[in-house]
Computed example of a mutant assay.
Amino acid sequence: MKTKGLVFLFVAMVAGLAAVVLGTRWLQSKAASDGNRIAVAAIELQLGGRVTREAVRLVDWPSGSVPNGAFNDLAKLDGRVAITGIQPGEPILESRLAPVGTKGGLSAVVPEGKRAITVRVNDVVGVAGFALPGNYVDILVNTEKVGDRANDKDQMISKIVLERILVLAVAQEANRDETKPKVVNAVTLEVTPEQAERLDLARSVGNLSLVLRNQVDANPTDTAGITKAMLLRTAAPVPPAPARTPVKVAVAPRRPTAAKPQPAPSAPRSDACVEVIRGVNKVTECF
């Protein structure tokens, strides 16, 4: 009985193993019968890197889950440029490639209508190397307040001039999959033409600083900047009021008016009167 039990157990194990093998082969043959083969990365493709025939390969893919923009012809991928990092085994999609005819390099990553500008940084300005490709930063400038007295240190102001600027590259590295801090002396930023003008002026009139911000925080900020007097909570000196200059008001000449006739002066009256009779005539004389 014991020997029969072992035989039955062995037969069951062999039957189970055969069922697994046959099932696997059936699934593979069904997937192959669909005839869907798409291109995937054979090696890691760097951002801005050119795709070659050796860097891609075709693999079988279920027909019901083929992603949009997938390629089934390797010839169509030859010479294309990746605008994102692609790991080995990942499908190569049209949305992850630059337009046809684009040359490799960082210029392929810059979107239409945007520009790339590089600013000099150090270990402090560059947020200790944490400003990596793919991160967003604000640009802070420390300069002299406009309209105040020159060379007056109390009138220095610190102000955010640009917000949520994308870091394209640090030094000559543009890999966005890197997470380790890297202290460099230059950072390349993605800006609009108007932002490029503001940034170029800001670095010529003061000292720049990068402020690292959350990648999903798109809320704009509205600050007035801070001066030394505000920082130390002291009242800013009030300039003396300029002396007032008397204002002369021009008075228009008066138009002449017609003179009113004046009454003839009356003879002075007196209370001393004398009645004089000359012959038949009688006159009253007053003094």
Rank of each mutant, 00 (worst) to 15 (best):
D123T: 13
L166F: 05
T227S: 09
S33W: 08
M1T: 08
K30T: 07
D271Y: 03
V81E: 00
A116I: 02
M230I: 08
P256E: 05
V21I: 14
V167E: 04
N219R: 11
D222R: 09
Q46A: 07
E163M: 02
V251C: 03
I86P: 00
T284W: 06
V66N: 01
D222P: 06
N68E: 11
E190V: 06
P181M: 04
R244L: 15
A272H: 07
G279C: 10
V141W: 01
P256A: 09
R96K: 08
E144D: 04
S209W: 13
L210E: 02
A18E: 08
L232E: 09
P181S: 05
V124W: 12
V191C: 09
A15G: 04
G49M: 10
A229T: 15
R120T: 09
R37Y: 11
G85H: 03
M13H: 10
V238I: 15
F8W: 15
R80G: 01
I86G: 05
E173C: 01
V125H: 08
V121D: 05
V119D: 02
V20Q: 14
R120F: 06
A19M: 10
N219Q: 14
K153L: 14
I139K: 02
A224C: 08
V40C: 04
Q215W: 04
G134I: 00
L74A: 03
E173I: 11
G104T: 06
A18S: 14
A252I: 07
A41S: 09
A272Q: 12
S209E: 13
A169P: 03
N122I: 07
V59W: 01
G23D: 14
A18M: 11
T3F: 11
M13T: 06
D73K: 14
D60A: 12
A19D: 13
G16F: 11
R269V: 09
T192F: 04
E44F: 07
G35F: 05
D78M: 04
C273K: 00
R198L: 10
V7G: 08
